[in-house]
Design a protein around this nucleic acid. Structure first.
Lengths: 188, 188
DNA sequence: CTCATTTTTTGACAATTATCAAATTCCAGA
DNA sequence: TCTGGAATTTGATAATTGTCAAAAAATGAG
């Protein structure tokens, strides 16, 4: 709860009434490692926030291959803003990499909140924009031709990933094979 | 002008008053092929809409290499929603591929409009979300390992690109060399 | 702590792709 | 219509990366 408030406070000064509303409408769910938090193809009905743990987002293509799209750690919302806003099927599955605790608000409560406190529209727009910027950074990363350079760029921008995420998912995230990643890492 | 209204009408029923406001605050700028519409690093002060022509978005990396990030054709807004909202430097340069006409609204007018007609907050959120979904599709495309498959996927999802955009930019967009693209195309 | 399972590494080889060079085709402006 | 520069293609070669197989290391459940 405090973590959610801290997150929002980074964008706007939260009033007592707003605090109350939020407190009254948050729910808590805990997931064990390996459990699914979000299923590709489902239409989202809540907005989640990771308070502890780590989640991997991936999508399964026509050939049944999994492609890792990203990760969410504590103090970050759990993606899918676009599907949430548009009420469209989520484009990825979220799976807990570790035991993970989340806090969430139902879609109806979320929109009630926005209607009651419209000044948060701008906050939401800003948050979505920030995640859009991140998404843009990802496509820039993927356009780096050499695998070695891609890995180096990831090390520079998100060193914490390598500590916390199994290498096979890092490889998948970078769009290379596990073996290639292993060899890149072996050379110093 | 009509094109902008049509675009917005896809999201919401536009009232007379709103129409008036929009008409009073739109400006027109025309660009010759090769001219820069948007410069990487600048902070955006307007929101543009392409009414005719085509624009290529690219960023220049530390080594001075250009990487094509996307294209905007007629009846589409000219990206950078994230930078616009956050007032941060734009992450790419927009260059006219053809003679291009744009219509735009200044940032101040845009925010005045949103304050006057707050029901458009939801529209803006939806539009941003849609472009976020597109950005997500791009990263999915780029994670396809084989160049051949990447090209095939592009052909399927955006065949119009190949008709209208010089191949060297398509190659850059797909993250492969011009020669490789040429050879992929040569084989049927 | 032990054992089974998963993850990561390593090796050999094949396929893909980048690089460099040159030829050819295309296109815009004179 | 002609022409020079840009875009695309083609060729030869080297480097990178994927694939398959197996070994080694790490992890977790009991």
């Amino acid at each position: 709860m405090q973590q959610v408030i801290d997150f929002i406070s980074g964008f706007i000064q939260v009033s007592e009434a707003e605090l109350h509303f939020i407190a009254d409408n948050l729910q808590y769910t805990s997931f064990k490692k390996g459990e699914i938090l979000l299923q590709q193809g489902q239409i989202p009905n809540k907005l989640s926030f990771v308070i502890k743990g780590a989640v991997r987002g991936y999508y399964t293509d026509e050939n049944g291959m999994e492609h890792t799209l990203g990760f969410a750690f504590e103090n970050h919302p759990l993606g899918a803003f676009d599907s949430f806003t548009q009420q469209m099927p989520i484009g990825f599955t979220g799976c807990a990499l570790e035991n993970t605790d989340t806090i969430w608000i139902s879609q109806s409560a979320f929109y009630r909140f926005l209607e009651t406190y419209p000044r948060y529209e701008k906050v939401v727009r800003t948050i979505i924009s920030q995640y859009m910027t991140l998404e843009g950074e990802k496509t820039k990363l993927l356009r780096i031709i050499s695998s070695k350079e891609r890995y180096r760029a990831l090390l520079e921008t998100q060193p914490e990933l390598i500590q916390r995420v199994p290498l096979k998912y890092i490889a998948s995230y970078l769009g290379i094979t596990i073996e290639t990643l292993s060899r890149i890492r072996a050379k110093r």
